[in-house]
């Protein structure tokens, strides 16, 4: 592939930056959280849960921060002229940039996951290999989705400050996604949403899992076999425990019989793939048809 040298250069840029390793450190630091609720929920697979906790918060921020400058950085320094002078099509440049950044972020996050696995192995003993490997794949899928969003932001903006604002706006929206979805749902249907007793509404639950991190949590909760929800695994287990009331949206707690088919956790793979494909397609369209400079 002609764009592989560019991808290698991009991944080297990420892997030799402090940002990628700060991200990995934060994932480990934040993720390793031994809790009674977590142990009661999944036992030794709490080690896999540590990965979910760390990744859920820090991977979206970290991956966006190391990828949103992928093209805008070249523009602001003027080095994009050199890049465009290479014997590569613009699509190949975009592919090289995105895949290189993904490899860098992916390597850092895999290192963090392995560190958490090592700590968990020492602290709690062996854990399920299948949930671990599944969570690793889901984590890489989330990383690729976030890199795709970062590359899109980098493609559509002309100034670094605008790109940074875009990243911040994205993070704010995903941070308050539950509140946004429930407010919109109430405004449309007139039905107030009480997270302690959530209405059995398929569209409401579907909307809650449409963000990359929400889809990631649904998928990893499925792998951990705790329940069908975009919340963290120990919150889902607490919600489903008898006699406990928690403000969390969990399908099994709201629906009798598991809910509609489109809430099946496996479909979160599709959500994540859409988050990879659509931003990349948009970025390609903008980068190939617009003024690259």
């Amino acid at each position: 592939m002609r764009w592989s040298p560019l991808a290698r250069s991009e991944s080297r840029t990420v892997l030799t930056s402090k940002g990628a390793w700060i991200l990995a450190s934060l994932v480990v630091l934040w993720g390793f959280r031994p809790t009674y609720a977590g142990w009661d929920a999944v036992g030794r697979n709490i080690t896999v849960g540590y990965i979910q906790i760390g990744v859920d918060l820090f991977l979206p921020i970290g991956a966006l921060l190391v990828s949103y400058q992928s093209l805008i950085g070249e523009r602001t320094t003027g080095s994009i002229k050199f890049l465009l002078g290479l014997p590569l099509t613009r699509t190949q440049i975009l592919l090289g940039k995105a895949s290189g950044r993904f490899v860098g972020v992916g390597a850092a996050i895999v290192a963090a996951a392995l560190a958490l696995a090592g700590i968990g192995l020492v602290e709690h003993g062996p854990f399920g290999l299948l949930p671990f490997l599944g969570t690793l794949v889901a984590t890489l899928l989330l990383a690729s989705a976030m890199v795709a969003v970062g590359v899109l932001v980098s493609t559509v903006t002309r100034r670094t400050v605008t790109a940074a604002t875009g990243v911040f706006a994205y993070l704010l929206v995903t941070l308050f996604w539950t509140q946004i979805v429930t407010s919109v749902y109430t405004a449309i249907t007139g039905v107030p949403v009480d997270p302690y007793e959530a209405p059995a509404s398929g569209p409401l639950f579907l909307a809650l899992r449409l963000t990359p991190d929400g889809a990631y949590n649904v998928l990893t909760n499925w792998l951990l076999d705790v329940g069908n929800s975009a919340e963290l695994f120990h919150i889902v287990a607490t919600k489903l425990a008898p006699g406990v009331s928690v403000n969390a949206f969990v399908v099994e707690a709201a629906f009798d019989g598991g809910g509609p088919w489109y809430l099946h956790p496996a479909l979160s793979v599709v959500v994540l793939l859409v988050w990879v494909g659509v931003p990349m397609a948009l970025a390609r369209r903008i980068f190939t048809e617009g003024d690259a400079l």
Binding site: S25, V28, L29, F32
Partner: peptide, 21 residues
């Protein structure tokens, strides 16, 4: 870089688990 990585690893090791129960 080596100092940074060492400091990061040590701080992670010493702080790990502090957020747990």
């Amino acid at each position: 870089r080596r100092t940074f990585l060492t400091a990061s690893a040590l701080s992670v090791a010493s702080l790990s688990g502090c957020l747990g129960d």
